[in-house]
C-alpha cells in the first residue's frame, strides 16, 4: 500500500510550550488509524497541524508526497483532507442541506457572472449539489431533516451531519475528532458501523481521535499513542493494549 499522509519530525511550540514534539506518523491509503492519549496530550493540535490551522514549528507534513507547508486550511481541504471538530462547528443557523451544500464549495467552478445571471454552468452545478447533498443526507439518515436548522438537531444527529459535511468535500483523508463524544453505547455502535462503511464505500483513509476504547480498539487497524506531545507507542490494537508504556500513561504512576 502507498503512503497517503506522512508527518516527519513535526513539532509545534506555543511560546515556550512544546505542544507536539518529534511527531512521526504515516497513514496508508485506505487505512483506518486511531490516535489516542490522555487529555492535553496534543491530539487536537496534531489535527490542527494536518489541516493547516497551525503551521508546524519544525518538520514536514505531506499528503500524497506533496508538502503541505504554508498552505491555508482551505487549500489543504482542496487537496483532500477533511475534518470534524471536537466541539461541533456546524453552520448552526443554516439548514441541514445548506450545511452540506457549502461543503461542495470547492467542486463548483461557475464564475461570478454565471452566478449573478444564473446562466452557463450555474443551473447544472447547483442542481447537482442539491441532488448529491440530499443523497449524502440519506446515507446519514438525515434526509427528512434537510430543511431543519442545524442547531435544532439532536446531538447525535449534529455529529452525523458534521461527518456528512466533511465527506461532501470529497476527501482522501478524513480526520474525526472524538466522533463518539457524548453518544450513548447504542449510538456509538452505530457510529462504528458507519465509520467502517464510509471508509469502504468512499474509498478513503480515516484518522480518528477517540477516548472510547471500545470504539478505537474495535475498528482501528493501527493505533498511535500520544503523551505530552510525543508518540510513545504505535501498533495494532492488541499490541497497544499490552504495551506497558501505554498502560502507564493511562493509569499513571508505577508500572
Amino acid at each position: 500500500m502507498s503512503v497517503l499522509l506522512e508527518a516527519k519530525n513535526v513539532s509545534k511550540m506555543f511560546g515556550g510550550l512544546k505542544a507536539v514534539s518529534n511527531f512521526n506518523m504515516t497513514i496508508d491509503k485506505g487505512e483506518l488509524v486511531g490516535l489516542i492519549g490522555p487529555n492535553g496530550a496534543g491530539k487536537t493540535t496534531a489535527f490542527n497541524l494536518f489541516t493547516g490551522v497551525y503551521q508546524p514549528t519544525t518538520g514536514i507534513i505531506s499528503l500524497d508526497g506533496q508538502s503541505l507547508a504554508g498552505m491555508k486550511p482551505s487549500q489543504i481541504t482542496q487537496r483532500g483532507i477533511a475534518r470534524t471538530f471536537q466541539n461541533i462547528r456546524l453552520f448552526s443557523e443554516l439548514t441541514v442541506l445548506d450545511n452540506v451544500k457549502i461543503a461542495y464549495h470547492t467542486h463548483l467552478n461557475y464564475n461570478l457572472i454565471e452566478a449573478v445571471l444564473r446562466v452557463g454552468r450555474y443551473m447544472k452545478q447547483e442542481r447537482e449539489i442539491e441532488d448529491n447533498g440530499r443523497e449524502l443526507l440519506k446515507i446519514f439518515k438525515l434526509e427528512d431533516k434537510a430543511g431543519e436548522i442545524a442547531k435544532n438537531l439532536p446531538y447525535g444527529a449534529q455529529r452525523r451531519l458534521e461527518i456528512a459535511r466533511a465527506l461532501a468535500t470529497r476527501p482522501q483523508l478524513l480526520l474525526l475528532d472524538e466522533p463518539a463524544a457524548g453518544m450513548n453505547p447504542q449510538e456509538t455502535k452505530e457510529l462504528m458501523d458507519m465509520i467502517r462503511w464510509i471508509r469502504k464505500d468512499f474509498a478513503l483513509s480515516i484518522l480518528l481521535i477517540e477516548h472510547d476504547m471500545s470504539l478505537v480498539m474495535g475498528i482501528c487497524e493501527r493505533i498511535y499513542v500520544l503523551e505530552y506531545g510525543s508518540i510513545i507507542a504505535q501498533g495494532i490494537p492488541d499490541e497497544i493494549k499490552k504495551n506497558p508504556e501505554v498502560i502507564r500513561a493511562y493509569l499513571g504512576g508505577e508500572a
Binding site: P73, D98, I102, Y104, L108
Partner: peptide, 29 residues
C-alpha cells in the same frame, strides 16, 4: 443572485463559523 450562489453560501459560512468555513475549503479571505 449572488447570495444564492456558491459565492453567497461561502459568505454565510464565514458568518456562521469562520474556522469551519475554512475547513470546508472556503478561502475566507
Amino acid at each position: 443572485n449572488y447570495v444564492n450562489s456558491s459565492y453567497g453560501r461561502a459568505c454565510v459560512a464565514i458568518r456562521e463559523n469562520e474556522i469551519a468555513a475554512e475547513a470546508m475549503g472556503v478561502n475566507t479571505t
